[in-house]
Amino acid sequence: MAYSKQWLDILDQVKEFEGNRIVWYRGQSNSQKTLHSGLFRVIDDYDGITIKEIKTIERQFYNYFLNLGYLHHNAQDWELLILMQHHGVKTRLLDWTESFAVSLFFAFQHWKPDKPACIWMLKPLLLNKKATKIEKFHNEYISKGISYTNRIDKETLNDFLDHSVALHPIRNNSRIVAQSGVFTIQGNTLDPLENEYNGELLDDNILQKIVLSEEIRNDIELYLKHSGINYFTLFPDLDGLSKHLNKSVLDKVNLIWHSASSDDFMKIK
């Protein structure tokens, strides 16, 4: 079965946005979800919360994870922040990937038929240029090498920029390597990325959103298969293998059960 014209048009849209620029991608199973980091999503739960109060929560997350989990990680500062994000702590990091196919995988997971999914595309170097006038990546967050712990200290005045910045991280675990993971780190604005600079990132073609409708679900599933993307390739550990086996084996069972005899069922490989 050939890819649909609608899907091929999306691939052309990705290529057109890219041009000769580095592009990052983020897949979301709900297209209505904003580009807020996990930490800043507390805005949705606590109406009227301030940046000072968010920083207090951030500092507690960091200190607890550092002190209570030290035997399990032996990390500090930026490396610890990335580890916190990896294990699901709410941080001001927002996950992106350098791979379009990987972003599709995350958009496809938990995608409900009644709600469109989406892919966000970002030109990270142009984002940094807009925030700092410098078109480059930094292994540490911009501001003359100030450590993360200094930034969240309550006495620090000029800690984070107002706007988000693209961060090329230390890839300190196998999952972030497999997923070609990168981050934006949210500044002190309370706006999600798409609303920063009064929406100019969208207007200036630095940020773009592709809505994925239910009609192309089969195209995406086939594209992921052709790209060799599955749970185990992106989560190269026993958890990822278990999820991959649950899906792949049961997919074969379902196919044979509905289309073949019981003798064929016993030949599943």
Rank of each mutant, 00 (worst) to 15 (best):
F17D: 04
S174G: 02
Y223P: 00
E140T: 11
L212R: 04
F160P: 08
N139T: 11
L207R: 03
D159G: 10
S37P: 03
L157H: 06
N158A: 11
L202P: 01
E215V: 10
K55S: 09
N188G: 10
T56G: 09
Y223Q: 01
G199R: 08
L68D: 11
K15H: 07
M121R: 04
G145A: 04
S259Q: 09
H138A: 11
N230E: 12
L245P: 02
G48W: 01
D12A: 13
T184E: 07
D162N: 13
G187T: 07
D264T: 10
T132C: 07
L81I: 04
L71R: 08
D191Q: 14
P113T: 12
N128F: 07
Y231F: 15
G145R: 12
Q208W: 14
S99L: 06
H138V: 03
I119C: 02
W24H: 10
Q60I: 08
E135R: 14
R59I: 05
E214M: 15
Y197K: 06
T189Y: 13
L94W: 02
I134H: 10
L83V: 02
S261D: 13
E221W: 03
L207K: 00
G38W: 08
E214L: 11
D159Y: 01
D77N: 13
Y141V: 09
L190D: 06
F137S: 04
I185W: 07
R21K: 14
R21A: 15
